[in-house]
């Protein structure tokens, strides 16, 4: 046979007893070196630039005013998200309903609140009293049961909740609609043949599966919302950013206080990311998992790496 006549030129090792040398990745090292230079330069800036005043950052990091602002930012984020999601579920169901009135109403709502910038909405809601001075509840064209002046109802906080929650409701509705549509049509058929009504099918079969699909985008949206809350500083609502602004308007230490706010926003968004990953993996595998695995999953490539094997160990 051919290979008998022509033995290997050099003393090659037996292929069954040797492992191939792993692929080299020189580009990783070149890119890494370039990145490292930038990181060193950035750290040098942070350490040597005296305008940063790290001692001021440390002084205000846990000050009562900043922590109160932090609390308001978190409260606003969660209230706006919860109201937004509840309205969003209703809008999504209306959008997919066969009732043309529901479809149209939902479409107009989403069109409007997705189209108007949240900052414009916040200012608009805050000045609602200029448009409608009093609100009253009563029989249309009949007696009035309850009334109040708009100025007493619209505080900076309620205006902020309205603006943020209504914007969120439009985005949430589109996500949840996509989630519902991603549930296999066979599921609703199976439910129908078991004699389930539409609302039973929706509540027991479709929504549980759809919500699982929309958990990652909702987590993403929560992080967006955390950052969008900084817009409420235009309403003089002392959230995290506005608390920092109030301090630096007294002390003129603009940069250190913006850094305080930045650090807190990063801390919060990191925590929210961790929570989202935890819920996502929990839903995928139904198993409890170790924090270290969730942490490492933040850094593993979802595309090239074998999916989830690292986390569901």
């Amino acid at each position: 046979m051919a290979h008998d006549k022509k033995p290997p030129a050099s003393a090659r090792p037996n292929i069954h007893e040797t492992k191939p040398v792993p692929l080299r990745h020189p580009s990783w090292w070149i890119g890494g070196a370039a990145l490292l230079i930038f990181v060193v330069m950035f750290i040098r800036l942070l350490v040597t630039n005296e305008n940063l005043h790290w001692e001021v950052v440390a002084q205000y990091m846990f000050s009562a005013e900043i922590l109160a602002g932090l609390g308001r930012t978190l409260l606003l984020t969660f209230i706006a998200m919860i109201i937004g999601l509840v309205i969003g579920v209703v809008l999504a169901i209306m959008r997919l309903s066969r009732n043309p009135v529901f479809q149209t109403a939902s479409w107009v709502w989403i069109w409007f609140f997705r189209g108007v910038p949240p900052l414009v909405q916040l200012i608009f809601w805050y000045n609602l009293a200029l448009l409608i001075p009093t609100v009253s509840i009563g029989v249309p064209f009949g007696p009035e049961l309850w009334s109040a002046s708009m100025n007493s109802l619209i505080t900076p906080f309620s205006a902020a909740v309205l603006g943020l929650a209504l914007t969120e409701s439009a985005y949430a509705a589109e996500m949840i609609r996509a989630g519902i549509q991603a549930v296999n049509a066979g599921q609703t058929e199976a439910a129908a043949t078991l004699g389930m009504t539409r609302s039973q099918t929706l509540r027991r079969i479709v929504l549980p599966q759809a919500l699982k699909i929309v958990i990652p985008p909702i987590g993403n949206d929560t992080i967006s919302m955390l950052k969008f809350t900084s817009l409420v500083s235009v309403l003089a609502l002392p959230d995290l950013l506005y608390s920092a602004q109030m301090i630096y308007s007294r002390t003129y230490q603009t940069i250190p206080l913006l850094i305080v706010a930045t650090i807190w926003y990063l801390v919060l968004s990191t925590i929210l990311t961790l929570i989202e990953h935890y819920i996502e993996h929990r839903l995928n595998d139904g198993k409890s998992l170790e924090l270290s695995l969730v942490l490492s999953s933040l850094f593993y490539s979802k595309f090239w790496a074998p999916r989830r094997t690292k986390v569901s160990a």
Partner: peptide, 10 residues
Amino acid sequence: GMVFQSFNLF
């Protein structure tokens, strides 16, 4: 009752 080609279990 109906049984589907693709099972359609929940």
